[in-house]
Simulated assay, not measured.
Amino acid sequence: MADTVLYDVTDGVGTVTLNRPDAMNAMNTEAKNALRDTLREAAADPSVRAVLLTATGRAFCVGQDLKEHITSLDADRAAGGSDPMRTVREHYNPIVMAIAGMPKPVVAAVNGVAAGAGAGFALAADHRIAAAGASFTTAFAGVGLSADSGLSWTLPRLIGHGRAAELLLFPRSVNAYEARELGMVDKVVPDKELALVAKSVARRLAQGPTVAYAAIKESLAFGAGHTLAETLAKEDELQTRAGLSEDHRTAVAAFVKKEKPRFEGR
């Protein structure tokens, strides 16, 4: 059986690839476990300075594998259970926290449809590049569910409360160009160029100041839910951390010499 998630580390980039193309990368239990664990591995690996999240086939990820899910619902009901959606707690929440919380930048290369949890994974990344043929949909209300995979947090922050509510209440396909206009993605490229462009962006980030990137991610997340005064205090803390890094010293010395800095990620 082919691995449901592929993992490769090259030139400081940890590439995590969803690999259930025949199922449009729908997330069964095996895939959810593998994605969660692989992202955690990438986050903890000091040789990985940036992560690229992408997929094989014609879809990025269509969310939960509903064939497996209906079987789980039936089994839970037969056993008298009352927690049929525990996969949110066990899988989707940890996956999104691994993407958004790791101290290194994550680039999502969206090669096709990103639906439900698949959209959530993409929007949790720090930078999103979509193929021209890609599309996004929240999907949840269509199957009688609320939002998960962080969409109730990421979507309104990217496109505003009103637009987020509309897309959650009235799920529809948002093509790549509309997604860019709304602010859901940062760049749209021809389908055939996605892999090359995304690798180039991830490699550029991997060659950058890793400590500073981690601080930027932390400051953005903190600022989203705190007052200006609290955020200024957090910026002081994080800037002190970045200022003590070797990369900062290297960059300042290179600037004085009018040279290009070579960051080591520490």
Rank of each mutant, 00 (worst) to 15 (best):
K217D: 03
A215G: 10
A202D: 07
A214M: 09
K217W: 03
I216M: 09
G225Y: 10
R203W: 08
L205S: 09
A206N: 01
T231L: 03
G225F: 09
A214W: 11
E235P: 00
A221F: 06
A206M: 00
K234I: 07
T227M: 09
L205T: 10
L220F: 04
R204K: 11
A221S: 07
A221T: 07
G225E: 13
A206K: 01
G223H: 04
L228E: 15
A214T: 08
Y213G: 08
K234Y: 08
R204S: 03
A221V: 02
T227Q: 04
A233H: 13
L220R: 10
L228A: 12
A233Y: 00
L228D: 12
V211R: 15
A214H: 13
T210L: 03
A224Q: 07
T231G: 04
H226N: 06
K234G: 01
G225N: 11
A212R: 13
T210D: 02
Q207W: 10
T210C: 04
R204W: 01
L220N: 13
T227V: 15
T231C: 05
E218V: 00
A202P: 03
A212P: 11
G223P: 01
L220E: 15
G208M: 05
I216G: 03
L232G: 13
H226T: 06
R204E: 02
Q207H: 15
A206Q: 01
Y213P: 00
G223S: 09
E218Y: 07
E230M: 07
A202W: 01
G223T: 04
I216W: 09
T231P: 01
K234M: 09
I216H: 06
